[in-house]
Design a protein around this nucleic acid. Structure first.
Lengths: 345, 345
DNA sequence: CCTAGCGTTGTAAACGTTTACGAAAGTGCG
DNA sequence: CGCACTTTCGTAAACGTTTACAACGCTAGG
């Protein structure tokens, strides 16, 4: 005899009562409930997942789809890992598992999703690396699978997302640079259709326009979101005809490469070109001068995401959780300085 | 009507036959099998996971236990993430999921394991951050849960593990340094009882002893496996009475901190103190001079681990997969140089 | 004293699958 | 024609849980 039946027998009560007691259902004497709980704790009983899943049609697990293609995530792996960690922690206290669903580059993301859905192993799904136009959203909506995205998308329709306010963050950075006297402020983003890059560029453009500063294509650098890409940007910037005096960049590896590229070409980040980065991260700890960047609370982001998807999936009676934009603050360091007076004209 | 029953009815046969046909069981006419398969494909039928799990007592998922305590993993998160990625890829092709089981620092690992086992959500488990004496091994063995570990342990008994040969790698490094003329070769490891650190130290000690070089405690530095820990080691090394001329270190963050600490104290890695690191990683890309370290094929490691745990769990008739030690080669760069001639005596 | 109602518990069906078992039909042989 | 055997298929019982429903004892009100 196993499981709940053994537990019930050891207490000389029926399995129905035991189940009700364990699941905090009403209609069970408080004294017997206490007995059940105590016995469950003592014997280490935990409800078998398969049985419960079958009966309830739910698996108590949330999937997290991650593209495994290199450079697929605009922010670098560290960024992603930190959010995941926080999410897992929050979910575990609610008793739901988080399973990673890696979709490697050779596989069509939509096929991958379809397969995953039909298996019925997850109750909800979190999409990351959201694209500007993201067909995955329509697919999930049609399949009636609860989902949310990390990062907005321009895809029309209502759905749950959570995002960081990089649009206004970029604006803040531009404003600060402008105040210091910068006029030619460039922006560097990973090439591709990641929504994050678009927002960053939009924020830059709007702020620049409002301040009457130039926003020509010669100030927009889109390269591979890797160290190599950053170094490439540096190479272009160095030999630019009318060299920008400041650079906003939104990818950890790119910034690292950009710094190195500048230095290799005899330019000092800060004094020669002001640089503003993406976020503080171990990858950028070593930069000298320390990079001026944005303060993101990834732990909080992960927690809020976990909370949102959990209520969406497991509390259908509760009001639908709403999308959120999380504020970002700007940290000024020595990598931001007034433009050099005697720039080579 | 749903699931396999609907499929059976649409073909006017019984669910038993359908199930046998789908699972490649013998005793079903090839012609009807073909019909079933065709219909399943056409209607997009996939067996419901919960039903199957309940009946078979298996879930087609492997758990990966990771300690979430900061600095819990000796090698740093990057190392871990790379292996995980490779494992997931390999498992997905076999149709089994990999679920991360984060055990945060406040929770007793053994309690955590016990709870996870009784829930019955996983068929097998992979342990990481193996300790020298690791009680988790006995627990899993007693519970008859198939498992393997990433990294050996001194815990007695047979079990499946996979490890990198850091013991001989450290020996190689020592030999190379000795050939260059180094005599006082130090070793820096994360404090704690991670088995990896022990092996690294053993390899160092054995090689040193064989070469007749000193192995006193003043050459062993054990600090927190973080950047701060590395900086701490640097501080101690700098003011050491008989300063070591070379350092072996086995933690990514520590190396980064050690480098910084040396430079802050006016010592040049390479010319003043030879430094040999753990592995190539994005975190160490920026170091100047580039760090001399070991070449590890993490992708291959992950693949072999996935293969091993899958046969252990799902092919009981096959011969048990055997533990493996994967070779490591040594990469020499400018961070390794002959000892400075005129060391301050 | 009867009955309605409440609080508590037991009973049994259901979730969707796999599989042991038996039944039916067909084949070969005495 | 009968028997043993094979091939193929249907039946039904599990797997462990949740939950609708019935049942029981008790109290209170008429």
């Amino acid at each position: 005899m196993t499981g709940i039946r053994a537990l019930a027998d050891s207490l000389n009560i029926s399995i129905g009562t035991v189940s009700r007691a364990l699941n905090n259902k009403p209609g069970v004497n408080e004294e017997t409930r206490a007995r059940v709980l105590e016995m469950a704790l003592r014997t280490g009983y935990v409800a078998n997942a398969a049985g419960r899943n079958l009966r309830k049609g739910m698996t108590q697990t949330i999937g997290l789809m991650m593209g495994t293609g290199h450079g697929a995530t605009a922010g670098g792996d560290n960024f992603f890992m930190a959010v995941t960690d926080a999410m897992q922690k929050a979910m575990q206290t609610e008793g739901v598992d988080l399973v990673l669903l890696p979709c490697h580059s050779e596989m069509d993301p939509l096929d991958f999703l379809r397969r995953t859905l039909t298996r019925g192993t997850i109750d909800g799904i979190i999409l990351t690396a959201t694209k500007v136009q993201d067909p995955r959203i329509a697919l999930l909506r049609d399949a009636r699978m609860p989902f949310m995205t990390l990062g907005r998308s321009a895809t029309p329709g209502d759905y749950l997302w959570m995002d960081l306010d990089f649009e206004s963050a970029a604006g803040q950075a531009v404003a600060h640079l402008a105040e210091l006297g910068h006029r030619r402020i460039a922006v560097g983003i990973p090439a591709g259709d990641a929504n994050l890059s678009q927002l960053y560029r939009h924020g830059w453009k709007r702020a620049m326009t409002e301040l009457g500063l130039p926003t020509g294509d010669d100030l927009i650098f889109a390269e591979n979101g890797s160290e190599e890409g950053g170094a490439l940007v540096a190479a272009q910037v160095v030999k630019a005809a009318d060299r920008p005096t400041a650079m906003l960049m939104c990818s950890e590896p790119m910034i690292s490469g950009f710094y190195g590229g500048l230095i290799n070409n005899g330019l000092r980040p800060g004094p020669d070109i002001s640089v503003i980065g993406f976020r503080q991260s171990p990858l950028l700890r070593h930069l000298a001068p320390p990079i001026s960047c944005f303060d993101i609370n990834l732990d909080q982001l992960g927690q809020r995401m976990a909370h949102a998807i959990l209520t969406l999936v497991y509390e259908p009676s509760a009001p639908d959780p709403q999308p959120e934009i999380m504020p970002i603050s700007f940290i000024v360091t020595a990598s931001v300085q007034p433009p050099a007076k005697s720039a080579a004209t």
